[in-house]
Design a protein around this nucleic acid. Structure first.
Lengths: 146, 146
DNA sequence: GAAGTGATTGCATATTTATGCACAGGTTTG
DNA sequence: CAAACCTGTGCATAAATATGCAATCACTTC
């Protein structure tokens, strides 16, 4: 429950500005998540979100991670949201992070992945078909939480 | 004076974490600035500071570029042609303009758009499905004629 | 010089966010 | 199975932040 809600929050933030926890609460309500402001305060702490002049935002890849980052790490740090269009996934990342994220994906040699194309903050992932795409999407959504 | 105080605030933030406006007030006091929390709330707004897990921070991007040119402008200036392939649109732009055009598209937060990937003179726009793609294509075609 | 104007600030208070406590639903342990 | 433990949550409320209003001050205009 909490994990799904966290994903929904990231998704919402990538779609439009959210100025207060109460506004976030109402938006989540429309998506079927009914929680109180107190819970959102805790969620925001968990997700390490920032609040600025334009509302809440996902941290921009500042943490600067070191070694050979695993897919899990890369995702936890830079992944924002995954969306699916038939056999393709569109993965939003923090700005400037799409390339390394795509590299990590390629490196994992996941059989579902036919190939990736990365821009600045978006990775397009091509799968064999819709089924493989769904499969991968679920997997990535879980990684987003870590 | 407000400007000196703003500079002092920036200085303080670069030296160590500041977690609350009241803490900031006390630190400024020691430097000879005696103002209330209300004033600091306004200062923070003026300086467009962000508050996150580690307190206040100066905005991420070096040069706070908040306002992108409007989609209409960008299109009128750099857009060349739109073509559709099932759920994707391929947008040709003047060479070197694909990135800014894609950025403008992203920031418009059009619901039809799952994501964009930009090269040098081409932007690939991924939509949910063929219907959304057609919808968006018509819209963009209109902008091109403007 | 009087009156008008705009900028800055404090005060009081509204609004927003964080948190102590209690409780419900699972899990693990004995 | 019961007891001891976690985790996640709401409720009530504390803490932090934003803001309407009025006062002050530096300038401008007539």
């Amino acid at each position: 429950m909490k994990n799904e809600r966290h994903n929904a929050i990231r998704q919402l933030l990538s779609e439009g500005p959210v100025v207060s926890q109460d506004q976030l609460r109402r938006k989540l309500m429309r998506r079927g998540f009914d929680v109180t402001q107190a819970t959102l305060s805790r969620d925001i702490h968990d997700l390490r979100l920032y609040k600025g002049p334009n509302g809440y935002a996902v941290p921009n890849g500042s943490g600067g991670n070191d070694d050979l980052p695993s897919l899990d790490d890369v995702f936890a740090n830079f992944g924002l949201a995954v969306r699916q269009a038939t056999n393709q996934l569109v993965l939003r990342t923090t700005t400037g992070s799409a390339q390394p994220v795509a590299a990590a994906l390629d490196h994992e040699r996941i059989p579902d992945v036919l190939g990736t194309i990365a821009g600045d903050d978006t990775v397009l992932i091509i799968c064999q078909d819709q089924k493989h795409a769904s499969n991968l999407r679920h997997r990535l959504e879980n990684l987003l939480e870590a």
